[in-house]
Simulated scan of single mutants.
Amino acid sequence: MYQAQRPCRTETVPVRTLHYHVRVWGERPADAPPLVLLHGWMDVGASYQFVVDAFSAAFAAGRQIIAPDWRGFGHTRTPAPSDSYHFVDYLADLDQLLDHYAGEQPVDLVGHSMGGNVAMLYAGARPSRIRRLVNLEGFGLPATQPAQAPQRLAQWMDEIRQFERGDLALKHYDSADGVALRLMKTNPRLPSDKAAWLARHWAAQDAQGRWHIQGDAAHKIVNPQLYRVDEVLALYQAITAPVLSVHASDDSLGQWWKGRYTLQEYHQRLTQVRDVRHAVVEDAGHMLHHDQPQAVAALIEAFVAGPAPAA
């Protein structure tokens, strides 16, 4: 099994009505901003361990690195069962996590997939709190039209009923090895040693010995709110931090949306960001921080090492 090179400690931080589970590497130096790593949908903060291990010794020694589990994922549990999650709650959660770990100091923010989308919108809503931002495949969603609202709301109500019947329950596994095989099936590039390590953080064992994914099945319910691109672009325009947009050589958008939303369209949206650079990680898919952690670590390290932007 993979052996973590830079073990972390875990902390519990009160955030709104929750007790947020956070992985922390290193202590907070006086002269460097925290590096905050945000995971994606159905993932956990531990997912960044391979990238943290790939940072240079000097960089890792000079930074405090923070990776929370989002609400309803990993060890950040809701105080009562929930049948609905709202995207804006992630922004408010992040806002208070930054209060705790950074105070008034701007942070360097990295987000993958859903975490990248949170990071981009948050950076537009709170531009002064972000020094530099790295977006790893946080593409956003296809544009919607108001006429889709009746069908979307009906779908949301139908899926809540499905959730209540247990139709959306996540599969459980007989062993951690079964979870590892599931991870490798989803991502054929994931080596078996890393899959075995991730499985024991991505899932947890119950009293009967079964392994369950550390994610609330309610996350599978569709968002009742349409994705309003004009609002997203307004938030992009408000970002003042330099942004590094990173995507993998595999075309995730092409695989997911079959032409309904393309990488070209995403890059067109990014023209609204005043200071944006682009990078591609070769021989990688959507989970690029698992596929090529050294390449991702090098991109992050080089980008956040630059000076803060002029006010």
Rank of each mutant, 00 (worst) to 15 (best):
E282R: 08
A279S: 13
L235C: 00
R16P: 12
R189F: 04
A154H: 05
V304T: 07
R16L: 02
H247S: 13
V22G: 08
L18E: 02
A196C: 09
D250C: 05
L18G: 13
Y266E: 04
L288P: 08
Q272P: 03
G72R: 03
E231L: 07
V88Q: 11
V51T: 08
P150V: 13
Y90N: 08
K194N: 00
P242E: 04
L35P: 01
Q148Y: 03
R161V: 12
W211M: 12
V246W: 04
D177T: 06
A67H: 10
L141S: 11
V296Q: 02
Q272Y: 12
Y85N: 06
Y266S: 01
R228L: 14
L233E: 14
V296P: 04
T10Y: 14
D89V: 13
V22W: 03
M120L: 15
P242C: 03
A308G: 06
S84V: 15
V44N: 10
R200W: 12
T12A: 04
S47N: 08
H289E: 06
A92P: 12
L183G: 00
N223L: 13
G138H: 09
C8D: 14
L244I: 09
Q268M: 01
Q96T: 09
V280A: 10
S47L: 05
Y122G: 00
V134L: 01
V51N: 01
R28V: 09
I213Q: 01
T240P: 06
W197P: 05
L121P: 02
L98G: 10
G166W: 13
P127E: 06
Y266G: 14
A147R: 14
G124N: 05
A297H: 10
A60S: 02
T271E: 11
S56Y: 14
Y122D: 04
L288Y: 04
A284P: 09
S175Q: 10
Y261G: 03
A32N: 10
L35N: 07
F303R: 04
G103E: 05
P142L: 00
I130K: 03
H39V: 12
A143W: 03
A54K: 11
M287E: 11
A203T: 09
M114A: 10
V118F: 07
A195N: 03
A54T: 05
R77V: 10
